[in-house]
Nucleic acid binder design. Structure first.
Lengths: 217, 217, 217, 217
DNA sequence: GATGAATGAGCGTTCATTCAT
DNA sequence: GATGAATGAACGCTCATTCAT
């Protein structure tokens, strides 16, 4: 999918990038604090260090800022993840490390993750698909590494299972952020990672009681 | 936690319930389409079938509507879940049925779940804790049934594991709604349920290749 | 000037009077506290002890209530004043007593006076002249008693002076209320009365320095 | 007491003053006609010659306009008065001129005075004391010049009398405005001034009839 | 005669967006 | 290229008034 371009009146490409950096930096801070809707364009301009007039030289609508912010976030996350997964040799051991790495990255970007998940719906009909596509790509990255383990014979999973596991991992990374109010009281990040990994790989452990005999089979 | 009451000017309790039903029904539809912030009070009134003046006879602030919506959802979900879990005998087999039941219920209330998930943060400082508390209670319900399986000896899990599994189940129920754009293309609901149950109970199945040499055995 | 009638839907005259009494009593209290504009018709109805619907059986517009209230106040003040002045024999001594009496009455009705003076302007084009007429009548009462003193030869004043003195007295009675924030800190009511009387009758007392020769040359 | 500042979004001080001038001018006219509460912000903006949006670039709340209006009036009156009183040599003759000057000024600002007198109570809890303080200062100015006459030996008055006379003068200046409906029919301004001055300095003139003998004892 | 639910015009205020300088 | 004053549509909310019961 082609990158959705945000139009700027200013021609100087270098300047556009610089100003948008300032803009995004300011906007992220504000969105974290008060959300997209409660943040005014004036506030963003001020946080970015220039005037409201200047702001509008680099975007067309307020929503463009949200898009720019979300786009940047995805790129950051994917970039880090990519770098890690590139070194992944397709073993279960490496997979575990990658998942743990991903969980830590997401924990590191908690606020950003929250912004992304709560405000993305405010993106217009043209920007949203583009953003969703980015997420599909990221899930795809996990599908690949898990898929490699299957190819290696280290795991025995159908394609459907692989896909769903990738989604689960992806969501569990976000969970740490969007359920922080519950999870972060009960677990340290490392405990969370260890437990989730264990559950991912082994599921719920059965007790010694025989299940077979009666049940509802 | 005491129920946060939304004040109405109208005294007739029956009428209050009826009008709020209309209101909630209209609001859910609108919130789903455009989110809480983009929905105006006039639109909600119109969707509910009465005037803006009448709307404000039944609430005090726009946010009250969101609270009412979210509160209603939680109550519905919990009520249904409660009813099901009450008949749960604390066996693994029953647990599976309950999880499947929960997944189906959540799928049934997709729109509501989406609203809940994306707009809850717009609730004010007094309503939010109340809502989070409701979620804790619901997660607690799963903790209990899983805990019973542990007591029975059918499952062998620590308390921490039980808690996290409950959270995972809870989130996976929501996932079907908030990741519909990906999941519902790839799976039917029943496939989703079956796969998730399998993963929950058995984790990723290992292949025949020996892993042993290094790792954590 | 004919009494401006406020129309009522209810026919029973007795009831109209009774209900309006309740209404006025409640309204005065509220107007004192928050003024006419900040008081809602619902509040007045509640304070009066009946429903908003009933309120409108006895008036036509909110402004009618203000008129009723102001009208009542004037009647009260005038009635009291009348009673006193009726016994006035037209001597200076009696005039002083009447002025003092009037000052005390106005002090007694401070809140009412404030309402009258701050809200009367909100009366419509038809009610205002009627109310102003009442004030002219009251000022006229003072004009009469002062005029009597002139006729008696106890005072030597032109008609114009009499009229202005009557206005001054009238305003000085109100002053105690509308400048309470300054006067009531500096004087007790009796001090105020004594001082004002002295100034009214003798003006500023000259010192012993000769003034005569001619200007300040 | 520190000046209560009304915040403006616009930075250009010159412009702020200019726009507020327009605003105050328009607002006075409207407040005079219909009072503060019945005047809408849109009307004020229109009367000032700009849009509602622009209006709010120069104030924060509707009440700010009232404050601005009242503040401006006080400043104008005091400034003029100050200028006059500064040249006052503390003689009775000069005092008379100053009072006459003050009466004329107040007559000149009738509309403003009316607004001040009737709407000041609508000022909020923070602006009101500030405004009352201004009035105390103005009354204080009269206290001073009268006090000087006492020091000179031209007048023989206690401190309490001086204070009350100052209040009376102050109120009589306003009277011409707020009782215009009666006074301006009966007197020309100059007549009013002459009569009031005479009454202030000499009180009611006694007739030739002996009062002493017995009175109404 | 009493009620109170319903109405909707109208309020104060905000804020994304424009455009002359 | 930068500025910020100006704009006005649109918002949340209030409340005088009506009218079916």
């Amino acid at each position: 999918m082609k990158k959705r371009e945000v139009e700027a009146s200013v021609k100087d490409e270098r300047l556009v990038i610089k100003r948008r950096d300032q803009m995004i930096k300011g906007a992220v801070t504000l969105f974290k604090q008060k959300g997209f809707h409660r943040t005014t364009t004036r506030e963003i301009a001020r946080a970015a260090g220039f005037s409201i007039g200047t702001l509008y030289e680099y975007i067309r609508k307020k929503e463009d800022i949200l898009y720019l912010v979300v786009d940047r976030m995805y790129d950051q996350i994917r970039e880090r993840l990519q770098k890690d997964l590139d070194t992944n040799q397709g073993t279960v051991e490496a997979l575990k490390l990658s998942i743990a790495y991903y969980f830590r990255e997401m924990a590191d970007m908690q606020d950003e993750v929250l912004v992304m998940y709560q405000e993305a719906k405010s993106l217009g009909k043209d920007a949203l698909p583009y953003v969703l596509n980015k997420e599909i790509q990221m899930v795809g990255m996990f599908e690949n590494v898990i898929g490699n383990c299957v190819k290696n014979g280290e795991l025995d999973l159908t394609e459907q299972e692989v896909k769903l596991i990738a989604h689960n991992i992806f969501v569990q990374g976000q969970m740490w952020a969007f359920r922080r109010w519950a999870l972060q009281k009960a677990y340290s990040l490392e405990e969370y990672i260890e437990l989730q990994l264990d559950l991912l790989f082994h599921g719920m452990k059965e007790g010694k009681v025989k299940l077979g005999t009666g049940g509802e089979g």
